[in-house]
């Protein structure tokens, strides 16, 4: 349903661009849950913002194609795109407290989405809003509708955000680190809510997170990003059983669930390259324990089968060693 081909987002000057997203390609099928995993600064949020058309000047977006349900979002005018964005594709963000407008009641903000895409009477919109608030598990929705965001907790605000996102029955929901800013106890609740809503409505869910463990639980497929590039994509069980990219392997090794008892947790040495220290060859090469001279000199292509792709000169085999 969603097909992204060679999406690139650049910031900085034309003379010295910084690629936050670098020729990224992946897709999401109808009703499917896909996770995008990467460290902060890996471009996972920016890619989804680009899909929504929310990357602003000075950011520059280019792509061969951003297909959604038969439309090419790249080719649509802003006006046409706005009929899809917010209706068929909805998005929720990391910081519920700042993502809602402090000057308006939560009810107004949900009803606004209904007014734009569905229409109807003021009364019907209000009824639908109460219904939505109840659906996302907000107690006493009739009263909460006239609360301002600062009167609600972070978890409640995220529920409001979710209600707003599903108001127009979207076919794809993009959730950008929806639980990161919340208390640990609330995180699981919000995740459960998202998944149950996804199943009920049969909508696709693109879950952006730095937490591979969450993805393993809820997603069917995963996209691993590193420094603006997709390094590996594939179905969940395969990726977890035999990661082909060294970065994916390292991420998996760093999972506490996989740590062997009495051994220190595995970590990945080094940091993601910034605008001033991009390596010339493979972007992971300074941190990769398998890196060769070839890796340091040339960037690898994004190869493999459509179902299982990897960006590595020497992808790992089942034994966890380079081929």
């Amino acid at each position: 349903m969603l097909e992204i081909e060679d999406l690139t987002v650049e910031f900085g000057t034309v003379a010295r661009p910084f690629r936050a997203v670098d020729t990224v390609s992946f897709g999401v099928a109808e009703g499917e849950v896909v996770g995008i995993v990467g460290e902060s600064g890996s471009g996972k949020s920016v890619s989804s913002l680009a899909v929504m058309g929310l990357v602003d000047y000075p950011g520059r977006v280019s792509a061969t194609r951003i297909g959604f349900a038969g439309n090419d979002l790249k080719a649509l005018s802003n006006r046409e795109r706005r009929h899809i964005v917010g209706k068929d594709i909805a998005m929720i963000f990391q910081e519920p407290m700042t993502s809602l407008n402090p000057c308006y009641t939560v009810g107004f903000q949900i009803m606004e989405a209904l007014r734009i895409h569905i229409g109807g009477t003021r009364r019907s919109r209000r009824e639908r809003t109460v219904e939505l608030l109840a659906q996302v598990g907000i107690p006493d929705p009739g009263a909460r509708i006239s609360n301002f965001p600062h009167q609600l907790s972070g978890g409640m605000n995220q529920r409001v955000m979710i209600a707003m996102a599903i108001a127009c029955n979207p076919r794809l929901l993009i959730a950008d680190e929806p639980t990161t800013a919340l208390d640990v106890t609330i995180q699981a609740q919000i995740m459960e809510l998202l998944i149950s809503l996804q199943r009920e409505h049969g909508m696709a869910l693109l879950l952006i997170t730095h937490d591979l463990a969450v993805v393993a639980e809820v997603a069917q497929r995963v996209v691993i990003m590193y420094a603006g590039q997709v390094v590996e994509t594939g179905p969940i069980p395969e990726i977890f059983q035999s990661p082909r990219h060294p970065y994916t392997a390292a991420l998996l090794d760093a999972l506490p669930e996989r740590a062997k008892a009495h051994e220190p947790l595995n970590t990945i040495p080094g940091v993601v390259p910034g605008p001033f220290d991009r390596p010339q060859g493979c972007l992971l090469s300074p941190r990769c324990r398998f890196a060769t001279d070839h890796c340091h000199a040339t960037q690898p292509a994004f190869g493999g089968t459509p179902d299982r792709r990897v960006r590595c000169h020497t992808p790992l085999g089942h034994d966890g060693l380079p081929t």
Partner: peptide
């Protein structure tokens, strides 16, 4: 199979930058 051998050159969409640049 190694991806690199098939397409080493085109695989670098990034204009190669000369080493690490320090912030000013």
């Amino acid at each position: 199979m190694t991806v690199a051998e098939q397409a080493p050159a085109q695989a670098a969409p990034m204009p190669p930058e000369r080493g690490a640049e320090a912030p000013p």
